[in-house]
Structure formats: C-alpha cells, structure tokens
Amino acid sequence: MYLPKITRLPSVRLLSSIQQQLLLPSIPPPTAPRRAVSQGEYRRPGQPKEDKFPWQPINFGFSKGFEGIKKHFKLLKKEFSDRWVGPEGKPLLEHMLEQNRVMWEFRGPESLEQWTVSSDREIGGQSEVHLKLGKNNNTCFLYGTLNSTPPRDGETRYSGYCTLRSEQPRASFDRKKHHDLSSFNTLHLRVRGDGRPWMIGIATETYYSHQKNDMYNYFLYTRGGPYWQDVKIPFSKFFLTHCGRIQDDQHPVWLDKMNTIGFTLADKADGPFQLEIDFIGVCKDYAHSEEFAYEVYKRNPEI
C-alpha cells in the first residue's frame, strides 16, 4: 500500500516560529566589543581594564617636544665627545686600570628617577612599597608592607612580592644603552636592612624574544640592626632563571651587556619591611679566580 510522504506546510513552520518567539526571551544579536582589534595583549587577573585609546595618555604639547629634542641632541653630542676621549668618556689608561666603579649612588631627588618600584598590586595583591631618600638625602630608603594573600580572581594562586628595579639606560633618541662590566668580577653593595632575605636580579640583553624574562639571581641576606654592611657578591655566583624558575642549562652572566639590576622581597613573611641602600658598585677582585660556580652542559664534551 502506498503512503504519501508527509511534509510540513509553510503555515506550520510559521506557527512554530511564532511559538518560539513567545516562549523564549528576546536575545540581542552579538556585537563586537569596542577596540576588539587592539585588545590582544594579555591582562593579568585583577588588573583593571583601561578603556582608552593608545594615544590618549600622550602629551602632544609643543614645549614637551622641544625639550625632548634638546635632551636627545645633548646626549648625541656627549656620545661623540666620549668617543674621542675614551670608553665612557674616560682616558684609555684610566679605563684599563680601573678597579672600582660606583654604578648608582643616592645623593639627591634626581637619583630616584633612575629607579622603579612595583608590587603585587599590579595583579590585585595587597602589598605596598614606597621609595624615598633617607636622612640627609644621602641614601635610598625602600619600605612598605608585604602581604601574601592572593587576589580572589580564580586564577592567581600565589602573591606577595615587592620590587625595586633600575631603569634601562638610554642613549640619544631613546636607543638602548648597556652597562659594560666586563672588566669587573664582583658586585659591591653597602646596605642596611631589617634581617629579611632579598633576591638580587640582573637582566642582560637577549637575542631572542622568548628570553625576555631571563634573569640572573642571587641572594642578599641582611643582618638587621643599626649598622651598615658591605656586601661583595662575585658575578660567578649568579644563576640563570626564567620567570622565577631555575634553568637546567646554566651559563655565566653576560657582563658586557647588562641592562638593569633589581631587588625583590618575597619571603612570605607578612609585615613591614625596610631596606636602605648607600651605593651600588662593582669591583675587580684579583683573589677571586672562579669563572662559574655551577655545572654547565658541554655540547662537545672532551674525550
């Protein structure tokens, strides 16, 4: 027996669509967020979202542009004059016989402009850090409160750090400039802390983009109390880390292209802290002959 194929009539389709519109809530069509093209950068959990165009914070004033041009041409003139005198503007003989060099000292408000402080507040934490000049404007005084409570964003598991880091040196027209410390082998500090352990980090120039978070670290143990302590740390003791993790493939610090140096506190001991720095320098210790304190992989081992 032949049965004809049953098909739905257009009236039935219209009736079903009307029922769906009456039963289901109205859903607006999806719209693209504002500036969706320029929001590709990663934003840490807890960091507030800035709904601004990239050019809004920039000051396009004529006076600022004129001061910038004047500053860069002054730096360019200094670069040309230093080349005639010797490396870094010093005579060649003085540069070869140099055994000590003060890299950073704090003798006025302008010396603090070369440093930047940061804490876990950038990821939603609760730590606080401040930087100011010490007594008689002769030292750098770093103080604050450490709080290891992680932010409640559902992603961040650990928190509690405060950091002081030097700025990247710049040549004329904002070109990168590096500290050449290849003539020295020891880091010399004069500090006064409260007994907390700090982490010293040295960042050097990298050749690949995935190495931008590489850093050489070593520990600074402060004694506490009212007395200053002179700390000398050989560069051979610094070990390589990436995003805070110690790497298996170790190699010595590239002293000829040093960019920045920093101090980090993350000992998970909540409470106030303070660190006072007189100067940061380097020296040549002829009694220290160690090239590197850690095991390195030999790509072509000797037989």
Rank of each mutant, 00 (worst) to 15 (best):
S236W: 05
S166A: 08
H95P: 06
S118D: 01
M1G: 12
H251V: 08
L15S: 12
E94A: 11
R101P: 07
F238S: 02
R121L: 06
D82H: 07
D153I: 02
S11H: 12
S159M: 06
H210N: 14
K132L: 01
P57C: 02
V282K: 02
S127E: 04
I18R: 12
E290M: 09
T260C: 06
T139M: 07
L76T: 06
K64W: 07
S182V: 12
L220G: 06
G125I: 04
Y218K: 06
L187P: 07
P169R: 08
P33N: 02
G65L: 14
S63T: 14
F219V: 13
M258N: 06
R223S: 15
F219R: 15
G125T: 02
N137G: 03
W55T: 13
L97D: 13
L75R: 13
F66N: 01
G46F: 03
S118M: 01
N259P: 02
G61E: 09
R35P: 00
W254A: 07
I18T: 14
S26W: 00
K135S: 10
K70V: 12
K5P: 10
G271N: 13
P28Q: 10
R13N: 12
R8C: 14
E302I: 14
E50R: 10
D120F: 00
G195Q: 01
W198A: 05
C162N: 00
F106H: 04
P48W: 02
C140T: 03
P234A: 07
K177Y: 12
F80V: 15
P197D: 04
G125A: 04
P25L: 08
L15M: 12
F73Y: 11
K64H: 12
A269F: 03
H179E: 03
S289A: 11
G281Y: 00
Q229R: 06
Q47L: 04
R196L: 09
F279Q: 11
S183Y: 03
T260K: 00
G65M: 12
G124N: 04
M258K: 05
M103V: 15
F80T: 15
V191W: 00
S209D: 15
G271S: 11
H288D: 14
F60L: 14
F60G: 03
E88Y: 10
R175T: 15
Q99Y: 04
G262T: 02
D194M: 00
G40H: 13
M103N: 11
V231C: 07
K284R: 14
F235G: 05
K212R: 15
L9A: 10
D180T: 05
I202Q: 05
Y208L: 11
G86Y: 01
T116Y: 03
S289Y: 06
R175G: 07
K176I: 11
G244M: 02
